[in-house]
Design a protein around this nucleic acid. Sequence first.
DNA 1: TGAATGACGTTTTGCGAATTTTGTCAGTCA
DNA 2: TGACTGACAAAATTCGCAAAACGTCATTCA
Lengths: 194, 194
Amino acid sequence: MDASRQENITRILDAAERLFRHYGYTKTNVADIARDLGMSPANIYRFFSSKTEIHQALCARMLEASYQQVYEISRLPLSATERLRRYVLAQHKMTVETMLDEQKVHEMVIVAIEREWHVIEKHIDRIDQLLAEIIRDGIEAGEFADQDPEIAARCFDSSVVTLCHPQMAAQCLAKENRPTPGELIDFALRALKK
Amino acid sequence: MDASRQENITRILDAAERLFRHYGYTKTNVADIARDLGMSPANIYRFFSSKTEIHQALCARMLEASYQQVYEISRLPLSATERLRRYVLAQHKMTVETMLDEQKVHEMVIVAIEREWHVIEKHIDRIDQLLAEIIRDGIEAGEFADQDPEIAARCFDSSVVTLCHPQMAAQCLAKENRPTPGELIDFALRALKK
DNA sequence: TGAATGACGTTTTGCGAATTTTGTCAGTCA
DNA sequence: TGACTGACAAAATTCGCAAAACGTCATTCA
């Protein structure tokens, strides 16, 4: 049956997420996850072909939540400028809070960045699509100069990478000689304007 | 005597640079450097208090060369826009070529980023000062909007970080969904314009 | 007298053995 | 018959110790 299969997958991911958050990604092995669910390690492999695949699925699930957040911001009844500003601030807050405060989550992210390029790339693509739509709105509303929304979205994203990329954010957080989030966002927004 | 002391320091750095480039930073020990110069390991410590200090000094020397390159660009008889464009392209080229092609240099850079924050921060400050001057020129010439040149320089730098930061450049190089250097530079320059 | 060194204590690294973990598969049980 | 497991091979990780590298200092030598 397919629904019960999905059920199992969700249960495994829930258990994995809880254990990874509590003990860390490397300290948790699939035997731990199996024990937590009262099943044998071998059984886990009927649903995920490797521990890495569990990590990837979990990663995708978390990124999906992040995407939802951005999606909601993108639909707010606000100017394109304001929506972009809120997007970056939300991402920055998310990055700083969950990546740096929670040591265990940070480990998962680092491993993810090192290894699971595909899930992350797909996420970036989807986010950039949303950004492109907002920018398209802005162009139509006369807020922004006429330009290719896809390229503009990529450039905008790259410009604020120091605020949203976990590694960069970690490196820049304590530095004196860096622009404030507000300054950098205003700068990037100015590039879009007429 | 102070001149001969300087002489020794330079010789040690020259030897260290050659050996680091050839064998890698971690594979080279201070005994290797000493042997190469026909002196005892202990003697090295009259000039540098640790292997790390040698690495830092070497780092500073290389960054100084990079600074010189930027300095020359900043004095070229070109528009501010064009000088900034050349600055980023030069940095990008440098980063890609020396950091990624030469594996051994890459190792030194990674160790440097992980440990020797101070030298690197100082370098960024100096570069940003040059950029601020160029931007000041641009404002006076009417190319750029009126703005704080210091802040603008920091923002500009942050915006193109994916092109100049060794780790970021390495991560973004192969990606499809990233702006091209040209696109990103134009984007950042647009933020400065009137 | 001060540049230079050999000898030496301390810390770090490298490496093979032992243990843990991953992932497979034949076989059990409902 | 197919969800599930225990037993097991292969791969990865940890551990303990020997070797190497770091950094100090009393001593030598010019």
